[in-house]
Design a protein around this nucleic acid. Structure first.
Lengths: 271, 271
DNA sequence: TGCCGCCGTTTCGCACTCCGAAACGGTGCG
DNA sequence: CGCACCGTTTCGGAGTGCGAAACGGCGGCA
């Protein structure tokens, strides 16, 4: 059971967003709600500071505070929203768990993972796991493709960090060699010397409009399932890269559709 | 009387905006609402597509659709929000009505006016009145200070327009002379040959951060109240310009405070 | 001037919607 | 195995939100 008054309130909020200012009559017209109901809803918004009612402005007007209702929505979750379907599809087809990681100050954070869907997974729970920038596949898969200024910003944070996993931040030459290798190959893998040794992750960047990296997309598998890492990469890198491109397009599509209220059309999933 | 369920819903929406993903327990913690209530509210949001609940993401997550709750909020109404207090104060002190106008394609639109507060007003209702770009003070007060590309865009719309008031768009030399005069003086007045002849308006631009024009701010008076237009301008232009500067600062202040939930602190009004 | 129509708001009594304590099923942990 | 915690469901009661109707104000019109 859903709460009717809330749905109506959201409906009114949407309507208010369509015009610089709205009269009761106009809202009544577009939402179909009875006028006393509208007055009550608007009075509630007003009490909380989301709208103001001023005859000098010709009715009810949104205030700057409405922004706080969606201010926390970077495009961060967007890439998860867009990527989820492909990640699930990939896991269904190839068995191994897929993860999407996003930057968060001094590490990347796994924001989505199909570990619960994958019978064969080296980990139990991965969501919200923080992974080091310079040793983990998902960290490097983002870092290596980030623009120079962003990389420099991250490094400046890591240099003050005592964690052994961030040692590379203090070894510019080695780091440069690692990064240019990753950029040349188009994907990153986990450093060999970090735990757990029995598994590996391959990660590729997901790009947004304008070519900026939004996130990294990774697949994790047991090393024992393949004769060599090269073999595994040869198999999964093209798949990840294709998925990454599709996710980028889906992000663009969602961004365009945000204003419309059309129901979500399910994307064409890989078969 | 306000509607409790809506207030709670907004509260939850705010909380969701503070974290990439939220569990029921976390929301219960921060909002203090009973868990069954939270579940109902979240289910409502989910039904309308504003949040998604996915264990793979570790709880409830906002979707791109939340943006539509504040997408209509350009910084347009913001300048009105910021300017209202000063406009009212100016009218109280100087009697004449003050208006704030914003661009809307082929004209400017009065979005705020103290006409209702002013006993002495040449007009009855002004809000939502559309004023021609090149003959009205509020149009010119914006146009003359807009960047070149924006001016060119507006002109390209006006050139196809049959309205007599937009004739100047087809007379580049005369227009240039008019515009550079306005820029030099720092304010605009209504063209002498348009109605109503018994009144005049003086308008100045309101600038945003980065020096872009946000709106124009105008005062309207009966010509018969002054021996000459020069006299009126000499008196009111400094006042309008000072108010414009204050409003710009207020806009900046609101923009900074948007995320915080601190109650609106009333600005220092001119005495 | 007086009448009419429209608009935003308030009233008020009833119905039903929303509420939340309690219980439930699941999962991870010691 | 028992415990603790978490998200979700149940369910009966009451308080909350509902909307038809009425109100007051304003502007237009004759």
């Amino acid at each position: 059971m859903t709460i009717r008054s809330i749905q109506r309130a959201l409906q009114v909020l949407q309507a208010l967003n369509c015009q610089p200012s709205s009269t009761i009559a106009a809202l009544h017209q577009t939402t179909g709600l009875p006028k006393p109901t509208l007055v009550r809803i608007l009075r509630t918004f007003e009490a909380d500071g989301y709208v103001e009612n001023d005859s000098r402005q010709g009715g009810y007007v949104l205030t700057a505070r409405v922004v706080s209702l969606s201010a926390g929505f970077h495009s961060d979750p967007l890439v998860v929203e867009a990527g989820r379907a492909w990640a699930i599809a990939l896991t269904r087809k190839h068995r191994w768990p897929i993860s999407i990681a996003l930057p968060d100050t001094d590490a990347v954070v796994v924001r989505f993972s199909t570990v619960p869907d994958s019978a064969m997974s080296p980990f139990h729970k991965t969501v919200n796991m923080r992974l080091a920038w310079l040793t983990r596949a998902l960290g490097l898969g983002y870092f290596a493709f980030a623009p120079d200024d962003e990389r420099e910003l991250i490094l400046s944070m890591l240099r003050n960090d005592q964690q052994a996993e961030n040692d590379l931040a203090r070894q510019p030459q080695m780091l440069d060699r690692l990064i240019s290798g990753i950029r040349a190959r188009g994907f990153a893998t986990r450093a060999e010397y970090v735990e757990p040794r029995n598994s590996d992750t391959i990660a590729v960047p997901i790009f947004g409009q304008g070519g900026r990296v939004l996130a990294s997309l990774g697949i994790t598998y047991f090393r024992s399932a393949f004769p060599s890492a090269t073999e595994a990469c040869g198999r999964y890198v093209p798949i990840l890269q294709a998925a990454s491109r599709e996710i980028s397009e889906e992000v663009a599509r969602i961004l365009c559709a945000v204003h419309g209220k059309s129901p979500d059309t399910p994307p064409d999933l890989p078969n």
